[in-house]
Nucleic acid binder design. Structure first.
Lengths: 155, 155
DNA sequence: ACTATTCTGTTCAAGATTGAACATAAGAGG
DNA sequence: CCTCTTATGTTCAATCTTGAACAGAATAGT
């Protein structure tokens, strides 16, 4: 099992991920942010107007998770949840001015860490790591969208 | 920021990790195991007699986490915690017969997933991903061992 | 139009994880 | 021998995360 290269190498991926996440959490503490909050803000910077469901899908977490986190951030004045006039079920999400400012700082922190760790590999290696990982993501997303979604067969 | 290759590629790593973890959790459910339990058992298979602190260090989690998980597994008859005669503070950890049997099944599940996702890359790419990740782990462990000197991470 | 299904966000209880504060045991230095 | 410091494991309260069950809005099929 430890002689299996695939296993051994994947374990390294998991360990690296875990450590980077921890380091990020540590450095985010002065901003009073947790990594889930940062993930949300990063997505809202790129895609303002997302619904909570959109966000949950992108982050691969449950919808209830968003229901727990977003009201906190709203009370803190970081995000705004506007009811959608076109679809009375959905809430459209936007960063406030303050949210954008904080997001900028937090993203700088994250970028510094990522730059630090990825600079240990050459740009070619870095790109190749990304390619391998994107293949994995695509593979697993495919497999699971087929599992539960029956309407997918109709398309 | 999304034009930064390092950032973009690291995001892929994090997403892949998250998804694989989820898939593992799903497939572990029939065995009534959570991924933290598997992590513990994997380590105890390789290194019987570890202390709870050793385990926490290897897994990069807090010691209190072990205090929460191990008594559960002990009650379930999967692990045994023997007081160390040489050091009355420490508890030496061992898998029971039942624990070893269950660990074998669970490791098979994990190996199947890892094999599946890593087979999307060539053996050379796979090895190279592992190398990049091990560099990251080493880098972060070094940086932090200066802070609070605890981590003696080996594999 | 009508019913059934799907999709939105919410609530709630259960479990995981953490960090701080604690108690006890071991080790260092006087 | 006696402190002072460090290490081990525990407790506890706070927070994150999830899945199931829910209510209301939209959609599809008839």
């Amino acid at each position: 099992m430890w002689s299996n290269p695939r296993f051994r190498n994947w374990v390294a991926v998991a360990r690296a991920c875990h450590l980077v996440q921890q380091e990020l959490a540590r450095q985010l503490k002065p901003l009073d942010l947790k990594t889930p909050h940062l993930d949300i803000m990063v997505n809202l910077v790129r895609h303002p107007g997302m619904s909570q469901q959109d966000l949950a899908n992108k982050l691969f977490v449950g919808r209830s998770n968003m229901t727990m986190l977003l009201p906190q951030m709203e009370k803190r004045g970081l995000v705004e949840r506007r009811p959608d006039p076109e679809d009375k079920r959905a809430l459209r999400l936007f960063l406030t001015e303050e949210g954008r400012a904080l997001a900028e700082k937090a993203i700088a922190v994250q970028s510094a860490i990522v730059d630090d760790i990825m600079s240990l590999s050459t740009p070619e290696e870095c790109e190749q790591v990304g390619d391998s990982m994107r293949r994995i993501v695509g593979h697993l997303v495919d497999r699971h969208s087929g599992d539960a979604d029956l309407t997918e067969a109709a398309q």
